[in-house]
Simulated scan of single mutants.
Amino acid sequence: MLLKSALPVALLLFGSVSFTAVQVRADEHIVMILQSAYFPDLISVEMGDTVRFVNASGSKHTVGSSEGIWSTDMIADGAEVTLEIRQAMAGRFHGWTNSLIEGRLDLIRAPLPD
């Protein structure tokens, strides 16, 4: 008997709860590895975005954070590597071609949903 009376109350409570879907969108950013620079060398990213490093430097190349937190494997000339942005990736990154080249990932906060 108690179960029969609890069911309409549970349905009423469940029916009064609204769920709001938040649209999630990740962007892809492309960074060209050139012989003497990254292009662009400043990238503003959000958590979950991806950065695709495309090697057009004429030689093999790795990209890594200046703090030593992350690094790509060796990227052959003409090849590319895609990384998903995590919190620890923000800051300066660098690599070597004929000389040291540097760039920066700035982590921006996504706006809060209304």
Rank of each mutant, 00 (worst) to 15 (best):
S99Y: 08
H61R: 07
T82L: 06
T72R: 00
G78N: 10
G68D: 05
D73K: 08
F53S: 02
P113A: 09
N55C: 04
S59R: 10
S57G: 05
E67K: 09
F53P: 00
Q87M: 14
V81W: 04
L83G: 01
M89V: 01
D77E: 14
G68T: 03
S71F: 15
L100P: 05
T97W: 04
I101K: 01
M89P: 01
E84R: 06
G68S: 04
P111R: 03
L107G: 01
A76Q: 11
K60V: 14
V81D: 05
I69L: 03
G58H: 07
D73Q: 10
K60P: 12
N98T: 13
L107T: 00
S57M: 03
S59L: 14
P113H: 09
M74V: 15
R104A: 07
T62L: 13
S65Y: 12
A56Q: 12
M89L: 03
G58Q: 05
I69F: 03
A56G: 11
G58P: 01
V81G: 04
F93W: 10
R109N: 13
S65G: 15
L100H: 11
H61A: 05
W96Q: 11
G68V: 03
F93Y: 15
E102M: 13
A88N: 11
I85Q: 01
R104G: 04
N98M: 13
A90P: 02
G68I: 03
F53W: 05
F93H: 08
I101R: 00
S71N: 14
G91E: 03
R86G: 15
H61W: 07
E80M: 10
S66V: 11
F53G: 01
G78E: 08
L83H: 00
L105C: 02
N98R: 10
E84W: 05
G58L: 06
T97I: 08
S99R: 10
L83P: 00
N55F: 02
H61E: 05
E80K: 06
A110I: 07
G91L: 00
M74W: 15
A110R: 14
M89T: 01
S99A: 14
